[in-house]
Simulated scan of single mutants.
Amino acid sequence: MRVMELVRFGDPEAAFAAREVPRPAPGPGQVLVRVMATSVNPLDLQTRRGDYQDQVALPAVIGNDVSGVVVETGPGADDFQPGDE
């Protein structure tokens, strides 16, 4: 799967790099979502800027606001099924 990885803090033009990574498997209580849309919120900007360097290990895939379709569920994620939006 293709990700935009935060590789350094600071200027957005130099902070991110495109990378192929293995598709993750959902763990207990988790779902794997094919992201169809995302946004950038103030926390993402602060993280990229370096405000949370002590909490974020680089490289990192940041961002929490997504919309998409469930493609796989982990054990105990009983409220979701593949295909759920």
Rank of each mutant, 00 (worst) to 15 (best):
V3N: 13
L43M: 05
V35R: 03
Q81T: 15
V40P: 11
A60N: 11
L58A: 09
S67G: 15
E20K: 11
D51L: 11
M1P: 08
A17D: 01
G50E: 05
D79F: 00
G29S: 04
D84E: 02
P42H: 15
T38A: 14
V71C: 12
V21C: 04
G27S: 08
V56K: 08
T47A: 11
P26C: 08
S39I: 12
T47D: 00
E13S: 03
I62G: 00
A14Y: 01
V35W: 03
M36L: 11
V66R: 00
G74Q: 00
A37F: 02
L32Q: 09
P22V: 13
V66H: 00
A37K: 05
A15P: 09
L58C: 06
V21S: 04
L6I: 08
P24K: 04
G27N: 06
D51Q: 02
R49K: 13
P28V: 12
P28I: 10
G74T: 03
F9P: 10
A15W: 01
A25W: 01
T38C: 12
V61T: 13
R49H: 10
R2M: 02
V7T: 14
S39P: 12
D79Y: 01
D44Q: 15
E20V: 14
L32Y: 02
Q30Y: 07
D65I: 03
D11F: 00
D44F: 11
M36E: 08
V70G: 05
A77M: 14
D51N: 07
A77K: 13
Q55H: 06
E20L: 06
D65F: 03
Q55R: 14
A77Q: 13
V31S: 05
V21R: 12
V71F: 01
R8D: 01
N41S: 01
G50N: 05
A17S: 10
V69K: 07
R49Y: 04
P26G: 08
R48P: 02
G10C: 02
V40Y: 11
R23C: 08
M4F: 12
R34C: 14
V69T: 11
V70I: 05
D54H: 14
E85R: 14
R34L: 15
A17F: 06
D78E: 14
R8G: 01
E13I: 00
G10Q: 06
L58M: 12
P12V: 06
R19P: 04
A57L: 06
Y52F: 10
P82Q: 04
A57I: 03
V69L: 05
F9C: 09
